[in-house]
Amino acid sequence: MRRYLIPLIFGLGGFAVLVSLGIWQLQRLAWKEAILADIDARITASPVAVPAAPDATEDRYLPVTAKGDLLGTPLRVLVSTKERGAGYRLVTRFVLEDGRQVMVDEGFVELEENAAPGDAEGVTVAGNLHWPEEVDSWTPEPDLSGGLFYARDVATMAGALGTEPVLIVARTVTGTDPRATPMPVTSTGVPNNHLGYAVQWFGLAAVWLGMTAFLLWRIRKRTV
């Protein structure tokens, strides 16, 4: 029996650790699903006016509606979609009726489309406030002179356009001819891989248990 004891302890201990990691990932899955449900609820809530002092944490995804003028040449943010390939997001200075100046992410245009559609006055924008976290150490510096960005950096874009660091990601833009295809805020970009991780851990646990059983069988064969 002593020959079996150490392999059995090692095998069952490893199996227990791997199963516990799988259970932990299932718990993380439930936590992430609750977060996604909260994001979806925020996105689809009834729209309100743009707050006087929006907070990047408290007001993230807040649905808003505003009327004003889209003015000047938009910034171009390089982006790619599965459906249409490479193109730009147009981020435009938006002067509200009360004189405040914020930004609107109007949506997607293809590389060969008009990325400088001119001014549009008296438009109504409905969408969500957003402070995307897209910039990392691999993101190239923006070409400020050319108005070209490689990720949405709200603070830097606001400095380039001379607006508040407030971005409305449009769901609809009415009162003007279509200038871009809206790319509204959704929860689909929030990663949720916990189910896959759980399956991997449980799979490893099954393999570990099988290897343990095989080792015990080999030990038995040697002693017969």
Score class of each variant (00 low, 15 high):
residue 44 T to F: 11
residue 8 L to V: 14
residue 18 L to A: 08
residue 112 E to A: 11
residue 172 T to N: 06
residue 17 V to K: 02
residue 94 F to M: 05
residue 162 G to Y: 09
residue 47 P to W: 02
residue 126 A to E: 15
residue 53 A to V: 12
residue 90 L to C: 06
residue 67 K to V: 13
residue 69 D to S: 10
residue 155 A to W: 00
residue 143 D to Q: 09
residue 30 A to S: 14
residue 31 W to F: 07
residue 94 F to R: 01
residue 138 W to A: 10
residue 186 T to D: 12
residue 62 L to N: 07
residue 142 P to I: 09
residue 74 P to K: 04
residue 4 Y to K: 01
residue 69 D to R: 02
residue 66 A to R: 04
residue 116 A to V: 15
residue 84 R to M: 06
residue 125 V to N: 06
residue 29 L to C: 04
residue 7 P to R: 01
residue 94 F to H: 01
residue 112 E to K: 10
residue 74 P to T: 03
residue 178 P to D: 03
residue 33 E to Y: 08
residue 116 A to P: 07
residue 180 A to D: 05
residue 115 A to Q: 05
residue 123 V to N: 00
residue 211 M to F: 15
residue 143 D to R: 11
residue 9 I to N: 08
residue 99 G to V: 02
residue 5 L to R: 05
residue 26 L to A: 11
residue 86 A to M: 06
residue 23 I to K: 13
residue 169 V to Y: 05
residue 68 G to E: 13
residue 142 P to S: 07
residue 89 R to E: 14
residue 188 T to R: 14
residue 15 F to K: 04
residue 164 E to P: 03
residue 24 W to K: 05
residue 94 F to P: 01
residue 184 P to Q: 12
residue 86 A to P: 00
residue 159 G to L: 10
residue 138 W to D: 08
residue 141 E to H: 07
residue 105 D to R: 01
residue 208 W to D: 10
residue 137 S to H: 07
residue 26 L to Y: 10
residue 93 R to N: 14
residue 191 P to V: 13
residue 53 A to M: 08
residue 145 S to L: 14
residue 153 D to E: 09
residue 30 A to G: 12
residue 81 T to V: 12
residue 151 A to R: 01
residue 22 G to F: 06
residue 167 L to C: 05
residue 46 S to P: 01
residue 43 I to A: 02
residue 119 D to E: 13
residue 123 V to R: 04
residue 82 K to S: 15
residue 217 W to P: 03
residue 144 L to N: 11
residue 166 V to P: 08
residue 192 N to H: 11
residue 135 V to A: 08
residue 43 I to P: 09
residue 149 F to N: 00
residue 37 A to M: 06
residue 66 A to C: 11
